[in-house]
Simulated scan of single mutants.
Amino acid sequence: MSDEILVGYDGSPDASTALAWALDEAGRTGQPVRLAYVFEWLTVAGWVGPSVTPGAWPDETARRQVEELVHKAASDAAAAHPGLTVHGEVFDGPPALVLQERSAEAALLVLGSRGHGGFTGLLTGSTAVSVSAHAHCPVVVVRGDAPTATGKRIVVGVDGSELSLVALGFAVERAEQRGVPLHVVRTWAAAQWRTQGFDPDEADATERTTLAEELARWRESFPNVPVTTQVGPGNPASALVEASREAQLVVVGSRGRGGLRGTLLGSVSQQVLQHAHCPVAVVRER
């Protein structure tokens, strides 16, 4: 593992937006940035890999063009951000698989919501969803037109699960770095509480008390970060998507307490990835 920010880059507008977000993040942290262009060699029969015989498909001219593209993008980024270290590299293989593997050596992986394989109007692409489910480090999927929204809060979903508490730590650290408030969202299912014999007021009070206990250590460690909370019955994904309208980043754990063990990406995380109005960070333990 390194402190490097890895950016999935294919020259598409969404990838350029992701790169801008990563450079903005690196400008605060001083982390090096690496652009990763994954060059997939395909034939009618499927994946053939780099062992294809010379002179056969793919065209080496296309490979050189890809290398020139990514190296120019890295060079331009470094020139525009003279205090940062920026590299570009071309890898061979299926994009999702290669990015997942490379994430084991990165501190953060940043992706656009769609690449060249996507179509305007579609939701988050399959590569972004797959990588978010399998990566070895936190993944930021950059949604929306702007990579950053200065001054807007950071939103995090906390349901008491282990991974949501990891997400909380990630979120509060980013809030301090950016000098913005943190907004913590926690929802509960009224039907579940009724089966346990609790009335809504008692359920709400219990959830608020539990959340306050979970926040206590972070309030103490980051006293300069203003924290607001939103607690109530409802659908967690819907609440987070709505909160994302006024956020610069939404942070979720890869799987919450409603997820099944062995499930890599929970339904809430997937829905937020698909519908949020700002970049989404999916966080898991290594």
Rank of each mutant, 00 (worst) to 15 (best):
Ile5Val: 09
Gly8Thr: 13
Tyr9Val: 11
Ser12Arg: 13
Ser16Asn: 09
Leu19Phe: 02
Ala22Thr: 03
Leu23Arg: 05
Gly27Arg: 09
Arg28Met: 12
Thr29Asp: 03
Leu35Val: 14
Leu35Cys: 09
Tyr37Phe: 13
Val38Lys: 13
Val38His: 15
Thr43Cys: 10
Ala45Asn: 13
Gly49Ser: 12
Val52Ser: 15
Thr53Ile: 14
Gly55Cys: 00
Ala56Ile: 07
Trp57Gly: 05
Trp57Tyr: 13
Pro58Trp: 14
Glu67Trp: 01
Glu67Ser: 02
His71Glu: 14
Lys72Trp: 07
Ala73Val: 04
Ala74Ser: 10
Ala80Phe: 02
Ala80Ser: 14
Val86Cys: 08
Val90Glu: 05
Ala96Met: 08
Leu97Cys: 04
Leu97Thr: 13
Leu97Met: 15
Leu97Trp: 14
Glu105His: 14
Leu108Ala: 00
Leu111Glu: 01
His116Pro: 01
Gly121Phe: 12
Leu122Ala: 11
Val129Phe: 00
Ser130Cys: 05
Val131Phe: 03
Ala133Phe: 03
His136Gln: 04
Val139His: 02
Val139Tyr: 01
Val140Ala: 07
Val140Lys: 03
Arg143Gln: 13
Asp145Thr: 13
Ala146Glu: 15
Ala146Arg: 12
Pro147Ser: 06
Ala149Thr: 11
Ala149Val: 11
Gly151Gln: 04
Arg153Thr: 13
Ile154Cys: 06
Ile154Phe: 03
Val155Leu: 00
Val156Ser: 08
Gly157Leu: 06
Ser164Asp: 12
Leu165Lys: 12
Ala175His: 02
Arg178Gly: 05
Leu182Lys: 01
Val185Arg: 00
Ala190Cys: 02
Ala191Thr: 15
Ala191Trp: 11
Gln192Arg: 08
Trp193Gln: 07
Gln196Glu: 13
Gly197Leu: 11
Phe198Met: 12
Asp199Gln: 06
Asp201His: 14
Glu202Arg: 10
Ala203Gln: 05
Thr206Lys: 09
Glu207Arg: 07
Arg208Phe: 04
Arg208Gly: 06
Leu211Cys: 04
Leu211Gly: 11
Leu211Thr: 09
Trp218Arg: 11
Trp218Thr: 14
Arg219Trp: 11
Pro223Glu: 01
Val227Gly: 01
Thr229Leu: 05
Thr229Val: 12
Val231Tyr: 15
Ala237Ile: 08
Ser238Asp: 12
Ala239Leu: 01
Leu240Thr: 05
Val241Asn: 09
Val241Ile: 10
Arg245Cys: 10
Val250Trp: 01
Arg255Tyr: 00
Gly256Ser: 02
Arg257Tyr: 04
Gly258Trp: 08
Gly258Asn: 12
Gly259Gln: 08
Gly259Thr: 04
Gly262Phe: 07
Ser267Met: 00
Val268Ser: 06
Gln270Asn: 06
His275Phe: 06
Ala281Ile: 04
